[in-house]
């Protein structure tokens, strides 16, 4: 059985094409919403200061610090909402919050 998928719905979809009550039939659909656009401040990562202690990643409420092979990568700015928690918890001042400039 195939159901309506979140990726097939957008702001042009007529009411007949939406799921009843807005229910969602798959997991992880929040990836499709680019919440990074809501950001006022953005985190900047200084990889030279970073010791890869990995404290920041689990603290991020938006899963916007990708970790691969035991090392954090640069921010997922499509989803980071700029809350600044990562900068607060980094013991090595490797994250600095900057003013976001939206194009």
């Amino acid at each position: 059985m195939s159901y309506i998928q979140a990726k097939d719905i957008n702001e042009k979809t007529p009411w007949q094409g939406l799921t009843p009550g807005g229910e969602i039939y798959e997991g992880g659909t929040s990836k499709l919403t680019l919440t990074g656009q809501w950001r006022v401040n953005r985190p900047a990562w200084n990889s030279a200061l970073c010791r890869q202690c990995l404290l920041c990643a689990p603290f991020c409420p938006d899963s916007s610090i990708p970790v691969k092979d035991g090392k954090r990568l640069d921010f997922d700015l499509d989803h980071c909402k700029g809350c600044g928690i990562c900068a607060k918890v980094c013991p090595f001042k490797a994250i600095r919050m900057e003013q976001e400039v939206h194009q």
Binding site: M1, Y3, I9, E11, T13, P14, W15, L18, P20, G21, G22, E23, I24, Y25, E26, G27, T29
Partner: peptide, 17 residues
């Protein structure tokens, strides 16, 4: 299959629902 019920509905969708 999983199901999420009652998600936040932005204005581009809420009237349609």
């Amino acid at each position: 299959h999983p199901l999420a019920v009652g998600p936040y509905d932005n204005s581009p969708y809420c009237m349609e629902h």
